[in-house]
Nucleic acid binder design. Sequence first.
RNA 1: GGGCCGCUAGCUCAGUAGGUAGAGCAACGCCCUUUUAAGGCGUGGGUCAAAGGUUCGAAUCCUUUGCGGCUCACCA
Length: 530
Amino acid sequence: MDSESKPFSTHWADITADRIIRERGEKDVYVCASGITPSGTVHIGNFREIISVELVVRALRDRGRTVRFIYSWDDYDVFRKIPENMPQKELLETFLRKPITLVPDVLSDEASYAAHNEKTLEKVLPEVGIEPEYIYQAERYRASKYAEGMKTALDHRDDIRRQLNAHRTTLLADDWYPVSVFCTRCDRDTTRVTGRDGDYGVSYTCDSCGNAETVDLRKTSALKLPWRIDWPMRWSVEGVDFEPAGKDHHSEGGSFDTAELTSREVFGHEPPVSFQYDFVRIKGGSGKLSSSSGEVVSLSDVLRFYQPEVVRYLFAGTRPNSEFAISFDLDVLKIFEDYDKIERNYYNKPENPKKIKKWEKDARIYELSQVGAVPTTLPYQIQIRHLTTLLQIYSGDIDAVVSYLGDVPEADLERFRVRARCAWNWVNDFAPEDFRFSLRTVDDGRVDMADNLAAAVRTLGVLAVDKLGDLPEKEFSNLMYDVMHEHSLESAEFFTAVYQALIGKDKGPRLLNFLHVVGRETVSGLLGLY
RNA sequence: GGGCCGCUAGCUCAGUAGGUAGAGCAACGCCCUUUUAAGGCGUGGGUCAAAGGUUCGAAUCCUUUGCGGCUCACCA
């Protein structure tokens, strides 16, 4: 697709990019923002926000615009409660009400609980082609980088109270201040602001330790803005042009609503273009997921079963404001097949004008699904179902599968391996029992079966020694049926016997292809036992 | 109570710069004596939740209603 056709794309990322340019005007740099609180494991629902922004960033860059893609970690948030499944709860208990950036990391050896959650995500995002500029809120607040923003908020205390009260049931009192304080003696936010002292002084008392003092906005690490005020403050400091938000924010009276007002009236910044994204559900995968990460499914969990392009495809192919489920059951195979289909189509543009429109949409989704540059020619494809069969034959040995196939191009090898790992993980964790098998070995010996069945199996084994792999499949197939007839067997019993001899089950992958893949030597070895 | 989203073929859903309704699965038919929820070819099937409006023309825009879901009014 040439750049001229892009503005006409009806993909939501392109529509949003066009909207940003239209509403914000021509700018040297467009600032696109995303961010969450690392107060727990970052889950796949949080990921929707990140990738939604990234897709819009790409759309803007595809239009030749320069974009700054920032990701704010709100790690000066307070540690409210200890998540389930956390070790060392007694220790963590002593850190409640302190900022999460000061809570120790009991899961790994990062600098803090917040850092643990941050690094866990930061390490995996590049795998799906996402590399934003990270901003750590705790660091900024503690270095007083937001001193002026906090002063502005304090100066407009009455305006902000009015803005927030418009939607509250319990109104903020007259002595409320638009800042929260972490006590400098005990680090807890169990404090009350008691007054201001000049432009930059703020006085507070701590209910936990009794500390009372006056701090200077420009020098203290104690102060931060509450979420609803912090958000618009950051918009103005960073000059944010675009930031989506979850449906919890985008509601009448929600935080986006009040932040818009505060941004305009207090910080003098036109609020960013935004849209609302819906939640992500999980389908299948009962119990086997997220054992390491508590109750939520993380991006890393998803990447164990979906290759990065397919993960991107899931999000790029779904409108942000509609809910969808990530499946771990048999749907996984369907998703891979769907992805492969739009990949094939991408390199095969239809002539029929009626089909062009559909093709363009799918083509754009395919482009946006790529981790890096879009390949210039159709990458090597292997059907995911076939791959699961091959992997089971070779007991998960990916190199063995590669050499069996013999035609995986060097350039596509890494992508192939990633897919193979996903497929193998899926077979082991989620494939239905019917789907799974392991090839028997000669050492396993015979499976008990009636003499007439064993005789037919033996005959097929002899046939395999002579012909398997030499004859076209169709002809081998005919010979196979001849064997069945010679022994006066119904197809059902014959097939069952062969499957029993090969994998110890009544059913298995389509036999003809399966025999071929397993190979002459192994087939004749196993059938030769009868 | 407010807001947002959804309601399209039996099922799951595509279909937003408005222009004669699409896919997959299911069903049905024919073919293949061949099967892990991928055999092949073909066929039928929808008053696009309801009503009204704008328009030459509406699944698509506006209004109202019904049903379903989520969300806000505490914190982030």
